[in-house]
Amino acid sequence: MFKWFELIGKAIMSFLDLLGWIASLAIHLLLHWPRAKWDVRSIVDQLERVGVQSVFMVSVISAFTGMVMAVQTLDQFLKFGASRYIGGVIALSMVREMSPVLTGIVVAGRVGSSMAAEIGTMKVTEQLDALRAFGLDEYVFVGLPRILASLVMVPILTIYSMVVGTLGGYFYVVVRGVHSLIFKDSIRLLVDTYDINGGLIKSVVFGFVVSIVACACGFRAQGGAKGVGETTTLAVVWSNMLILVLNYILSTILFGGKV
Score class of each variant (00 low, 15 high):
37 K>S: 14
36 A>C: 06
59 S>P: 00
54 S>A: 07
87 G>T: 09
74 L>P: 04
54 S>F: 01
77 F>A: 14
87 G>K: 08
68 V>K: 00
87 G>W: 12
87 G>P: 11
50 V>F: 13
35 R>N: 12
35 R>E: 12
76 Q>T: 03
80 F>Q: 10
53 Q>M: 13
82 A>Q: 12
56 F>G: 07
82 A>H: 06
80 F>A: 07
34 P>S: 02
86 I>W: 10
63 A>P: 02
38 W>K: 10
70 A>P: 00
35 R>G: 09
40 V>M: 13
41 R>D: 13
88 G>D: 11
73 T>M: 13
41 R>C: 11
45 D>A: 13
89 V>Y: 12
72 Q>I: 10
83 S>M: 09
82 A>D: 04
63 A>V: 08
61 I>M: 05
51 G>L: 03
42 S>Y: 12
50 V>G: 09
79 K>N: 13
73 T>D: 06
75 D>Q: 11
86 I>G: 09
60 V>I: 14
85 Y>I: 08
62 S>A: 08
49 R>L: 14
34 P>T: 07
44 V>M: 13
57 M>Q: 05
71 V>S: 11
59 S>T: 15
45 D>Y: 14
80 F>R: 11
36 A>W: 07
36 A>Y: 04
38 W>Q: 08
34 P>F: 07
59 S>D: 04
74 L>C: 03
79 K>A: 15
67 M>R: 05
65 T>K: 06
78 L>Y: 07
69 M>Y: 08
53 Q>R: 15
70 A>Q: 01
35 R>V: 09
79 K>Q: 15
83 S>F: 08
63 A>E: 00
74 L>V: 06
49 R>K: 14
40 V>S: 10
38 W>A: 10
65 T>D: 01
89 V>I: 15
62 S>C: 01
